[in-house]
Each structure stands twice: as structure tokens, then as C-alpha cells.
Design a protein around this nucleic acid. Structure first.
Lengths: 230, 230
DNA sequence: AAGTGGTCTAGACCACACC
DNA sequence: GTGTGGTCTAGACCACTTC
């Protein structure tokens, strides 16, 4: 082989890993050897190897060389869309209703989760998202107004809090959790489902550096399925 | 600024995007201009820009230039671990029980999902995964034996099907779905939970090129939470 | 046609980990 | 020390897209 591009080299090396020409844990040739084999510069194979390492297929260590990852972990990347886009992608008309907007002392559970002092006042927003006027998701959100200046003045009628925050707040870190729960009476009523139905719950907590920004819980009615590609 | 590394440049550009110094949709300076600003070679800023584009923060097009992504979609990356690792990470002892291993015509629903002719024989594997001898997850799997030679001879007692496939089969594509469901009687009995409890269901379908490899459904008892970082 | 990003090169130096 | 990967450079050519 000669004059290969880094992408072709990437694919060829991936093939060797997948067909176990190079077994998990095995040391593969160094960059110089591969560059010679493929008839290209070291930087070119280097790019292919870096990409494979990013993808979790290789472990690279200076001096120790490059090894095939022992557990070639596949990673699924989940896009976290705005709910409007999520709904409109299905062809439905999006609408939302702001059920509550109060500045109130947060429950201890919420303030603890956000790492704030107990009893501190946060903005509490409860929103029902609708697809073709049927409940799509129920959102219960607490916002640290210190971290999001301007939200007090924002009109959240046209634009939902979800959407407003995506375009006006930023965060550096966050955690995301999924779980199955039984719908409580309030959630069931809002989502127009039977109490005790299985709901899909997504909770997200975001930080701007050390400052907590928002904690949100999204409840989806039965049948909702979150899908991604591997 | 001068003599910056590509990673420092990456972080600085990310900062500008996040604080909206460069608004979503805006055209940012070209590689040459940025290279001059940072006092480095074009390839160095190029690497930073490529990384930002990979992360979904930028849209790059030849001739048209580089723009801040209009919806700076955050992507959560979910690692798909072997269940053994998932259990052992919690400090528990992992064990598994193979409940069924039969080669049998697949139900239409399964064969359709895998894109196979109705009534074709597949390997059906049902496994209960245990953490400290308590049910951790129930796995219902169909394997296309044509795509995974050797599985017929594999002893799946020591190593679970889950683990065996990770290290012996490979796939090029796959889909992953999550949802909440109510536990059926059989699942409830196996997981030792009440029928009608909310279970977290993960289903995965993998392909090796055009050939379907395996379709698996994993059922987790109430309280199971899948977590990832943003 | 011209300007942008995408890639490649040949060489260099550095950082780290193992000997 | 020594060899590996990690990064940077200066230059070059190509591919694509808009003009």
C-alpha cells in the first residue's frame, strides 16, 4: 500500500483490530513502522492512531507504545436536543404551557443536589410540553438566578425555559441520568396518563465552573423511546 | 497571545463561543487570521478548529468558512460496558445464570426487527445477571449464528453471552434505545420485583455491514439509573 | 476564478515512562 | 539514557464552493 490518506489508514487499522489480526491488549507497530508500511509520513499514521484512540479502540502511552484496548468500549453519543426540535422532528406542532414561575426557597433535596445552602431561593419553573396539543413531556426545573442573569426579565411565554436557557446560558459541566419510575398523581394528571404508569425520567444538572446553573427533571409518558446510534 | 498549544487555542475559542463573543451562526475568522492572532502555524489552529467541529460547536465548510453551530448541541457519550464491569464497578460480586439456550425459529417481531426472513432459526439466549446474588438485569438475546461463527461451540457458563460477544463478535453499526415499561409477570418473577413495577429497558440491535448480528433486550429493576456526563 | 478548509510532508523538539 | 508518542512548523497541494 502506498500514498494512503489518514482516513484510509484509520479504516485499515480498525479492520485489523476487528478481525483480531491484532488481538485486544496486543502491542501494535510504532508510528514509524506503520508510516513505512503505508508509505506516508509519521504525522499521517499519527492522525489515524489518535483518532482510533479517541474512539476507544487503542490505548497509547509514551515509551510503552500503542496497544489494542482490552475492552474496546463502544460509545453511544446522545444528542440532547431542545424539546421543540425533538417534537418538530416528528412532524408534530410544538406548544408549551408555563405552569409555574415562582422564586421560592428550594426544597432541601434540590439545594443539596445543586450544592447550595439549604433554604436558598431559586427560580422554580414548571412547564408542560405539547406535541399536537397532546402532552409530550413535563418539565420541573430549578434555576440558580445568580448564574443566569437576565432570566428574571425573560418572557418565557413564546420561548420555553428549556429553549431560552439553551440559547442564553452556558455551562461547562453537567450530569445526565435516566431512569424508569411510576407516575405520581400530579404527573399522571398533567400527562393525561394513569397513575402508576411507567414513565421515562431524565434528570440533568449543569454547572458553570463551580456555580450550579440549573437542575431539571423531565418526565415522559409511557411509550417514549430515546434512540441513538452506536 | 503567542506560542499557544492547540489545546489552549481550543479552550480559548470554546470560551469565546460560550460567552457569545461569537454568536451562534456567526462567521469566525479564518485559519490564517487565527494563526496570526495566536502566533502559531495554521495547522495548529486547524487542529483546534477540527476538534471543536467534532464536538459539534462549529460548522466548517470549504470556501464558506467556519461558523458557530446554530444549535450548539451538547452530546452525551454513553459508554456501553460489559455488564460484569458495570456490576463490579459498584463493588458487588458478579454472577450470571444462563436460563435458556436454544436454536429456534425467531418470532416474527424479532426477525423483522433484524431484517431477516420470518421463521428463520436464531440462537435464543436468556440470561439473568446478578450483583451480590441479587438480580441486576435480565437479558433476552437473539443471535444470528451466521454472523457469529463459533458461538455454537462457546461455553457460556463462565463467560456470559454478553461478555463473549463483546470479545468475539464485531459490528459496524448499531442502534440503542431506552424506555420505561411496566414489568411483565415473567420479568417480575426473575427480577424479584412486583409485577407492574417500572423497569428500565435498553434494547440494542447491531449489524456487521449488512448482516444483522444480535438483538438484545436488557431489563433493569426499579431504581436503576443510567448516568453520564455532558 | 478565487478563497476557504482538508490533508500531507519532512523535519524538529519535547514529555514521559521504562530501563 | 533511550525510545515512544505528542506537538509544532513552514510549506505545499488538493477539493470544494461560492462568486
Amino acid at each position: 500500500m502506498s500514498a494512503a490518506t489518514w482516513n484510509e489508514i484509520h479504516d485499515e487499522l480498525l479492520r485489523r483490530i476487528r478481525v483480531r489480526e491484532w488481538a485486544p491488549g496486543a502491542l501494535i507497530p510504532g508510528e514509524l513502522a506503520l508510516a513505512e508500511e503505508f508509505g506516508c509520513a509519521r504525522a499521517t499514521v499519527g492522525r489515524a492512531l489518535t483518532r482510533l484512540a479517541d474512539e476507544g479502540m487503542l490505548d497509547r502511552r509514551r515509551r510503552a507504545g500503542t496497544r489494542v484496548a482490552t475492552s474496546p468500549v463502544r460509545r453511544a453519543t446522545l444528542a440532547i436536543p431542545v424539546i421543540r426540535a425533538e417534537v418538530e422532528a416528528t412532524g408534530a406542532v410544538y406548544r408549551h404551557a408555563l405552569l409555574e414561575r415562582t422564586e421560592t426557597p428550594a426544597p432541601d433535596q434540590v439545594s443539596a443536589r445543586m450544592g447550595l445552602a439549604a433554604g436558598i431561593a431559586l427560580l422554580h419553573l414548571r412547564t408542560l410540553h405539547l406535541a399536537d396539543d397532546r402532552p409530550h413531556a413535563y418539565e420541573d426545573r430549578w434555576v440558580n438566578t445568580d448564574a443566569v442573569p437576565g432570566i428574571a426579565q425573560a418572557a418565557l411565554n413564546e420561548t420555553s425555559a428549556n429553549e431560552w436557557l439553551v440559547s442564553h446560558a452556558w455551562y461547562s459541566d453537567g450530569t445526565l441520568g435516566f431512569q424508569a419510575e411510576l407516575a405520581g398523581p400530579q404527573e399522571a394528571a398533567l400527562l393525561q396518563i394513569a397513575p402508576g404508569a411507567a414513565v421515562f425520567v431524565l434528570d440533568r444538572l449543569t454547572w458553570a465552573g463551580d456555580i450550579p446553573v440549573t437542575s431539571v427533571r423531565l418526565v415522559y409518558p409511557p411509550g417514549h423511546r430515546m434512540v441513538t446510534k452506536l
